[in-house]
């Protein structure tokens, strides 16, 4: 894949924004806090530093690179969710559930690392997630969030397909979206076993079609789960 596209622009924009925030804080806050912020600036200036993204903005970029970064962003979100879920299991998690959720965690990490590797220098920075609305000790809360993430993932890939110009990338998206759909069905079956919910009328229309949702709508839907501001207005363009 092309490792040059958009990278430098994205990084520069992110750093400029961060520095602007930091400078504002330096003026507003005490000397003691400013010292801590000094360390922040040094950290943020390293291109490969994925940690300090407090209220940073990332631009997914344009064209196919934008679509791939869009997928990478969603996979980052999913991988972080399942990693936390397995690290702090909800009370009463059965062995079967643990096996399933660990599998899904691994798939999402593999997806994330695949995109990171494939995008190379064009990859967006690591996103900072915000799962404060999810009660990780509560099964219904966790599986409800899992269902949302998986259904959203399916709809996102379905909606992004027609934006992809390179047939190899399109096939890659196709290879992943059906796995996300398998996840969605299994999570839904855990929530409501042996019902129609795995492919319920709430998401499948009268033609027997899953939904396809545009990047802008998907990013708005997941906004509450990401501290980093994600700009995706040029994805696929």
């Amino acid at each position: 894949m092309n490792k040059k596209i958009e990278t430098s622009k994205t990084v520069e924009k992110g750093e400029a924004q961060m520095l602007s925030v930091v400078n504002r804080r330096l003026f507003l806050r005490s000397a003691g806090v400013a010292t801590a912020m000094g360390a922040f600036i040094l950290g943020a200036c390293k291109d490969d530093d994925p940690v300090m993204q407090g209220d940073a903005t990332v631009d997914l970029g344009s064209g196919d690179t934008g679509v791939l970064n869009y997928a990478y962003a969603l996979e980052q979100l999913e991988a972080a969710f399942y990693t936390q879920l397995i690290a702090s299991p909800y009370s009463g998690m059965s062995d079967i559930e643990k096996t399933i959720l660990t599998d899904i965690r691994d798939h999402e990490i593999i997806h994330r690392e695949f995109f990171k590797t494939a995008l190379g220098n064009a990859a967006i920075q690591d996103l900072e997630v915000n799962f404060s609305s999810i009660d990780f000790s509560n099964r219904a809360s966790v599986l409800g969030a899992a269902k949302l993430f998986e259904d959203t993932g399916v709809q996102a890939y379905n909606g992004a397909g027609k934006l992809i110009k390179n047939a190899d990338y399109l096939l890659l998206a196709g290879k992943i979206v059906s796995v996300e759909a398998r996840h969605a069905a299994v999570i839904r079956d855990l929530l409501n076993p042996k019902t129609t919910d795995f492919a319920g009328d709430d998401i499948i229309d009268a033609n027997g079609f899953d939904k396809a949702v545009a990047p802008g709508d998907i990013l708005a839907a997941v906004k509450g789960y990401v501290k980093t501001t994600i700009m995706g207005s040029n994805v696929g363009k």
Binding site: G174, V177, S178, A181, R182, F198, A199, I204, D210
Partner: peptide, 9 residues
């Protein structure tokens, strides 16, 4: 794609 993901479910 919309049918494809239903098949996967």
């Amino acid at each position: 794609l919309q049918v494809h993901s239903v098949e996967a479910r």
